[in-house]
Design a protein around this nucleic acid. Structure first.
Lengths: 190, 190
DNA sequence: ATTTCCTCTTGACAAAAATCAAGAAATCAC
DNA sequence: GTGATTTCTTGATTTTTGTCAAGAGGAAAT
């Protein structure tokens, strides 16, 4: 199995080898240099990507600051879903934090999957349900935890990220300032 | 068209009248008395419901407090999606804040929709994508706004809710204490 | 009506987090 | 390697939010 077939298989649970081949063949591997953009806000997002290697930062620029919504690591998908699905201008920008490789599918090819693979919509639905549940979890963390607790929770589950990306982005993604983030880290060490 | 058919049509965009009838017939209208539970945490959530009238509070009980995740008003769906889709014990409890009516579908009948209506999975996928986008928006509000700003945003979009439910639940849902909520309200009036 | 319960408000205070400013440390470009 | 830039840390201070406690107001029950 190719790498992309493995992803599709693990995320969408497709068992049929033939379907897997079809879908996999529609994704194209491309590289993005550090600091380059996979998507700039304002443009319509015309592709869906999976991170094969590297790191992508998804952020929204406000008048005051940039808000990092998520950092996609190997295996995560990366797109402005609203823009991709409903053809609206994207609010998200997506930028590579290091040289990265992504498997991307164009909107046209994406639409073709549904035609070619009967079970696709059902499997994709389950995939999005899982994403939905992750977001619910994240909202819960903001409703019920302090910055300190959110830090610990995220750190425990994503240790490897902390020496790969500027910490200010993780801080933003967890809803705190870099200063607060730094002070929390200091406490953890002692 | 019956009320439930109207919902299905507006949320899932089904055009075929026959499909609509089929799906609509699988939902059963039931009533829930004020303070009664549609779902108690720990049980497996075996149905998916749409609010026809009334108000449902979805909350998670922690050791310290109850965290209100969302209040479902007319037209919203209400379920513990993780529990419903993956047959796990639910973390959410769902309780009626006033006498309410819901259209519910059992898990078995829900599964049958996919068989009976070819386009169902695709339409449902789009529905969940819209839910996903709403949650992304909500997370953004926690990453970039103060309690004050979150209050204003929510108030502007949900004025009618404020004289129907205990305000403490709205406070919780917005991630602040009842006291902070009360003080923000006081400032708004002046 | 009055008692009880629940919700909301208010004040005083404590804790958490943001802001501002400066400097250290690390990284990047040449 | 050296200088320039970016990122991180730290301190001082302010703002925001939470906590605790008391009381007011309303709704529901008896």
């Amino acid at each position: 199995m190719t790498e992309i077939e493995l992803y599709i298989n693990s995320y969408f649970g497709i068992v049929d080898a033939n379907d897997l081949k079809i879908i996999g063949s529609l994704f194209k591997l491309t590289t993005i240099k550090k600091n380059d953009f996979l998507l700039k806000n304002g443009k319509c997002c015309d592709k869906l990507s999976f991170v094969q290697s590297g790191l992508l930062r998804m952020f929204i620029a406000t008048d005051k600051k940039e808000v990092t919504q998520w950092i996609s690591t190997k295996g995560y998908f990366s797109t402005d879903l609203a823009s991709f699905v409903f053809d609206t201008p994207s609010r998200l920008s997506i930028q590579a934090l290091v040289d990265s490789e992504v498997y991307s599918i164009s909107k046209e090819d994406y639409k073709r999957i549904g035609v070619l693979v009967t079970k696709w919509h059902e499997l994709e639905k389950l995939f999005i349900v899982r994403c939905f549940i992750m977001l619910e979890e994240r909202i819960f963390s903001h409703l019920s935890m302090t910055a300190d607790e959110r830090y610990k929770l995220f750190f425990d589950n994503n240790k490897e990220l902390f020496n790969q990306v500027p910490l200010q982005y993780i801080a933003s993604m967890l809803g705190m300032t870099p200063e607060t983030f730094s002070r929390i880290r200091k406490k953890q060490v002692l």
